[in-house]
Design a protein around this nucleic acid. Sequence first.
DNA 1: GATTGATCATAC
DNA 2: GTATGATCAATC
Length: 238
Amino acid sequence: MGTSLPSASIASEDELLSRARGIGGRTLAEIAASLAEPLPVDPRRAKGFVGELVERALGVPSRTGVAGPDVPSLGLEIKTIPVRRDGRPRESTFVCTLALGLLPSERWDTSRARAKLARVLWVPIEHDRRLAFGDRRVGSAFVWSPSPDEEEALREDWERVQHVVALGGIASLDARVGSILQVRPKARDGVARVRAAGDHDAPVSVMPRGFYLRASFTRSLVERTFPRLGASPPRPPW
DNA sequence: GATTGATCATAC
DNA sequence: GTATGATCAATC
């Protein structure tokens, strides 16, 4: 009770969803102010700010440097998703990095990707280029788990990619690969490199890659959750 | 506008 | 270097 939020564990998924719904309609500036946190001077240089702000607002402890879902006890991952006024996602969603080792190190069933995507609390964030950063509003949060078909599609994409990597074909993988889970660079800058299996017997040095959910896929999740978004004129709340 | 490739910040 | 959190920016 009181003003403190649970820190050791989250009571339940319902409570977390309720908290997320509780900040629906609020602007980033309002939420930041309530947490006594300043807004970034240059949002372009604070790409992770929104996600971290929302996690703090929900009372989810930060787990810096630790892999896995945000709330391990619930197997729940929290993702903010930038959407236009009509609800369409403006960006893809980062999932996790690729395992680029010389030998296969993961199976889909126990992969980091599957663990994170097993259950996700999506928190839509209004993202209109005409809107000041602090004026962006939080949308209506919702929880998602992959349907059997979605799970199968994710598995197929993931296994195809990891198979290519294991065969030393990382160089042939780009963002066009994968129906809903794609591969894109994920690095500090353009000079970042990591050792990966090569196409013959020699390791190669390549840019680190990550798995991302295509925006076309997350769009389908939003549209399923908010069917009326298809109507015109589109307008919040989502 | 959608997609792909590149990049920014922070903790460890 | 790895992990977390993503969005920017060039190109199609």
